[in-house]
Design a protein around this nucleic acid. Structure first.
Length: 427
DNA sequence: TCTGGGGTCCTAGGACCC
DNA sequence: TCTGGGGTCCTAGGACCC
């Protein structure tokens, strides 16, 4: 059997941890740039604050009910996420924890007898809560997709399930599938949900009865086949070993306010390159392709569903993979020159590094004299200062100093667990 | 006035090879 | 009139996830 363990309203729970007076109050956390709502406590859900809705639209509701509102504080969430995962690793055999996202992991439970699964999972849940202060829900089933189904119901019916639901019989599984609408299945997004409803397939049980070849034709090829098999209890998505290195690394942001000068866009892009290069070095990699895009500001027709306008982008292959900020900034900024059109206003930009290789096996280039990664020392010194003291204490001139385009983050809580000067004060 | 950011996997189709 | 077949690699774009 497999399980998915999922932190309840993760970002909100993190904020509450250091603000116990918020325990029973509605809490929401906003995305970067204070744009959207990305986490809601149960109380916030109850008063009708919508997930992923724009902040400005929810604001009347938030003010009316006095909802505690936070900008996202990724230093804090990252650290607490690590604590939760580390706790689970200590309670489980080696290599049975697959971290899936900042607040979720799959675990392999084949070492636990079926009859003891529930008790064991309660033990996991209680220990995580006791050690980290974060509440989790656990769904257990023979496959990943079914465990996601179980997890969703566990969270939905907290009182009845105590946040742990085990699907250990065909009868329980069928009941769970019947209670799950197609759009709530892991792997079914808006496109597929619409299509399925068109065929009058409305819940997960109905979907599980569909023909495999039909799924292949209609639900994205092997992805669809796999989904049907998983719903029928046939494990088709193996547990993955820990993903060490990312294959692409991106840093993309809305600008704090629309930007219309080439200089400012170049500064923003140079700053994003610095961030992305840090991520690259943290995993001891180098990138050989660098892509840059910018998104012009445009109006959304009233009433229309919001969508971003097309992004304008291009990329360049470097003669040799690199992880040095200065080597990456130059080509990135040159790409901006090609993309920028005078007179237009832009709202977002981004940098994507791909073609990523380990930095100890960089493919030499016949036409470039080989030289040791001479920037390595400098870079790691800069990283150390910036990580331990203050973001961007040391930065490259190309990043600019005024930074009018910088994102808004007006409601961020202190980084309680990762900055000395922001520690919780008891007295 | 204000609608996130960072990923993964998969497919189709073109270029190219023998 | 007939105009191969089988394979690999690459890229762009779609769909999905949290």
């Amino acid at each position: 059997m497999k399980a998915i363990i999922d932190c309840n309203s993760f970002y909100c729970s993190c904020e509450r941890l250091f603000r116990p007076e918020l325990a029973n109050r509605a809490v929401v956390v906003l995305s970067n740039n204070d744009g959207c709502i990305v986490s809601r406590s149960d109380e916030a859900k109850a008063i009708g604050v919508e997930m992923a809705g724009p902040y400005f639209k929810a604001k009347p509701l938030i003010l009316k009910y006095g909802v505690a509102t936070f900008s996202s504080n990724y230093n804090l969430y990252g650290d607490l996420s690590w604590r939760v995962m580390e706790t689970l690793r200590q309670l489980l055999p080696p290599n049975t924890v697959e971290v899936y996202s900042v607040d979720e992991c799959f675990i392999d439970l084949s070492h636990i007898p079926i009859k003891e699964l529930r008790a064991f999972c309660m033990h996991l849940k209680d220990t995580v809560e006791q050690w980290t202060g974060i509440k989790v829900s656990i769904g257990v089933a023979p496959t990943k997709v079914l465990s996601k189904v179980a997890n969703r119901l566990a969270k939905k019916h907290k009182l009845a399930t105590n946040c742990v639901l085990v699907l250990d019989s065909p009868r329980k599984t069928q009941q769970a599938l019947e209670k799950t609408l197609v759009e709530d299945i892991w792997g079914v997004g808006r496109q597929y949900a619409t299509k399925l409803q068109l065929y009058n397939i409305n819940n997960a049980f109905e979907l599980s009865k569909q023909n495999i070849d039909w799924a292949h034709r209609n639900l994205g090829g092997v992805v669809g086949k796999r989904l049907i098999r998983e719903l029928n209890g046939e494990a088709s998505m193996p547990m993955n070993e820990e993903r060490i290195n990312k294959k692409i690394i991106a840093t993309t942001r809305m600008f704090g306010k629309p930007v219309s000068t080439l200089k400012e866009i170049k500064e923003a892009i140079a700053t994003y390159v610095s961030r992305a290069a840090e991520k690259l070095r943290r995993q001891h990699s180098a990138a050989a392709t660098i892509s840059v895009f910018i998104v012009p500001k445009e109006e959304t027709a009233p009433g229309a569903r919001f969508r971003h306008g097309p992004s304008i982008g291009t990329y360049v292959e470097l003669p040799q993979a690199s992880s040095s900020t200065n080597e990456l900034i130059k080509p990135a900024v040159a790409l901006v020159d090609r993309l920028f059109e005078k007179g237009r206003t832009y709202k977002k930009g981004g940098v994507i590094l791909s073609n990523i290789v380990p930095d100890d096996s960089i493919q030499g280039n016949l036409f470039i004299p080989p030289e040791p990664n001479k920037n390595r020392m400098l870079m790691s010194m800069i990283d150390n200062v910036n990580f331990s003291m203050r973001n961007d204490l040391i930065k490259f001139a190309a990043s600019g100093t005024t930074r009018n385009w910088k994102m808004r983050q007006e409601l961020r809580s202190p980084r309680y667990t990762s900055r000395w000067e922001e520690l919780c004060k008891v007295k």
